[in-house]
Every structure is written in structure tokens, then in C-alpha cells.
């Protein structure tokens, strides 16, 4: 008796499994009926299809994938450039919407700073465009009440800000540095900038030029920077005055500022932007 028990168990088990299979098949047939109705009521009967009709249905399903071919537009010369410009423009649009005026970039302890000699100098042409520091003035124009030529002392008379922030290069590297200067927003108040203006454009001693959206220009961490590591800016780092906006990528931090214009229409975008880089590039 004992010897027969396992055999009986196995038999019972097998029967169960067979019953399971039958149930699964019933279920599958039911599913198939539903599916067939959804896919093509005319092409199939309950749960079978003629091979020719199947081929037809298959072909029709493949044709439904034609929207994928639209991506081929990116392979067409001429159109490719326009599409990528649109894509970059969309990214800039999204960037401007993601930018939060009140959200500050992370600031760091002095211990986190890279040493000054390890702060990279990424001049686009020359390290020193030969600015006459003695007679330097910042020429202010555009939608402002007080246009004119401003001295460094006038900028330095504004409340001084010192911040340890991350400088992020478009190439992918970053370095934590110490920057000092006046808030661009304070300077804009001083020159009586039109609050409805949309852009700030700057031109530099080395023919570099840049522009900022007003939201970034008014950000509390955006500086007219005249100090690095508590020392006056050196020539390689943009003496006597540069932009420092930690919420922007490196190439927006224009050096050797000569002119600053407040505008409603962006007529001069930026040196690298004109080569194909993103304009907004907010971090």
C-alpha cells in the first residue's frame, strides 16, 4: 500500500496539470476571440485566420509604423540644420521655464575650493586682450535712464557679494571657485534699467559678446565680478570686470566687459551661440 501511494499522487498531479492546460486553453481561446474582434472583425473568424488574410493584416500593421520614417528628415541635409536648431530652441524654451528665480546655486565651504592656480583659463582667443585698466569704463546703453560710462569704483560702491560657487563648463568639467563682485541686479537699479526689458547684452575687449535673459540677470547670485579668491581679477580671468552667473554654463561668463546694453530685442546673441551653442543654457 505504502509503495503505491507515490504513484497515485503522481497520477493525481498529472490529471491536475492536464486540467490546468485545458483551462488555460479555454482562457486563451476567449482572449483570442476578444483580440480578433479588436484587431479586425472582417479578416478573421473566431480564432483562426486564412494565411493570405494573415499576410494582409501583417502588412497593414507594418504600414502603421510609417511615422517612424519621419525621423529620416534628420538625415536630409539643409533640413537637418533647421530641425536641430528647432530642437535646441525647444530645449532653451524648456530651460527658461525650468529656471526658478528664487532658487540659488549651491554654495561651498572654503575647504571645497579648487586652488586658484588650478582654476582653468579658457580664453577663446587670447588670455590678455590688453585692456587699459587705468582708463577703463563700462559703457552703458539701451533701455536705461542713466546711460553713460561707469568706473570700476562705481561698481565697487555697490554692496559686495562674495560666493563660492561651481563653475560648469559646457565641455563637462567643473571647478569650485570663489568670486566677488556687485549684484548685476543692483547695478541695473543704479543705471535705471527698464524693468520690462528682456535682455542684457555685453561686449568684451576681445570681441567676445554675450547676452543674458532678464530673469538670470536679476538672480541674486548673478554678479558683475571684479574679484576672484578675494583678489582683484587677473587679466587672464577677465580684468577688470566679468560676468559671473553660477546658474549659467561657463561660456556665458563673459570676461573683460566693455559695454553693457539693456534691450527689448535680442540683436546680438553670443559668440558661441552664433557657432551653434545653446543660448539659455541655464544649469
Amino acid at each position: 500500500m505504502k509503495g503505491e501511494e507515490p504513484a497515485e499522487e503522481r497520477k493525481a498531479g498529472e490529471t491536475d496539470r492536464r486540467l490546468d492546460d485545458i483551462e488555460v486553453d479555454d482562457k486563451k481561446i476567449d482572449e483570442a476571440k476578444v483580440a480578433n474582434k479588436k484587431i479586425s472583425a472582417s479578416a478573421m473568424d473566431e480564432n483562426s485566420i486564412d494565411e493570405k488574410k494573415f499576410r494582409l493584416v501583417s502588412r497593414r500593421e507594418v504600414l502603421k509604423l510609417t511615422p517612424v520614417l519621419a525621423l529620416g528628415a534628420f538625415a536630409i541635409p539643409g533640413l537637418q540644420e533647421k530641425l536641430l536648431k528647432k530642437g535646441l530652441g525647444f530645449s532653451d524654451w524648456a530651460s527658461a521655464r525650468l529656471f526658478r528665480s528664487g532658487h540659488r546655486a549651491t554654495t561651498f565651504e572654503n575647504a571645497d575650493l579648487a586652488s586658484f592656480d588650478k582654476f582653468p583659463i579658457n580664453g577663446y582667443d587670447v588670455d590678455d586682450p590688453g585692456v587699459d585698466l587705468e582708463n577703463w569704463r563700462l559703457t552703458v546703453s539701451g533701455a536705461v535712464k542713466n546711460p553713460g560710462r561707469y568706473t570700476l569704483a562705481q561698481v565697487q560702491a555697490l554692496p559686495a557679494i562674495r560666493q563660492n560657487t561651481r563653475h560648469v563648463c559646457v565641455e563637462g568639467w567643473d571647478v569650485i571657485g570663489r568670486f566677488g563682485g556687485a549684484r548685476l541686479s543692483d547695478f541695473l537699479t543704479m543705471i535705471g534699467a527698464d524693468p520690462t526689458a528682456k535682455y542684457i547684452t555685453v561686449t568684451c575687449a576681445d570681441d567676445y559678446y554675450e547676452s543674458l535673459d532678464m530673469a538670470t540677470a536679476l538672480h541674486p547670485q548673478t554678479l558683475l565680478c571684479y574679484e576672484m579668491y578675494d583678489q582683484p581679477l587677473t587679466r587672464e580671468h577677465g580684468a577688470p570686470l566679468r560676468l559671473q552667473a553660477p546658474t549659467k554654463v561657463g561660456y556665458k561668463q563673459a570676461k573683460y566687459l566693455m559695454e553693457l546694453k539693456v534691450t527689448h530685442v535680442l540683436d546680438k546673441v553670443g559668440y558661441w551661440e552664433d557657432q551653434g551653442y545653446s543660448w539659455f543654457y541655464g544649469l
Binding site: K28, I29, E31, N47, E51
Partner: peptide, 10 residues
């Protein structure tokens, strides 16, 4: 819907 099996007939 997925996993529904049909027979292709000739």
C-alpha cells in the same frame, strides 16, 4: 489582448 493565440489556416 496580448498572448491571445489564433490559428493560421490554409
Amino acid at each position: 489582448m496580448s498572448g491571445a493565440v489564433i490559428e493560421i489556416i490554409r
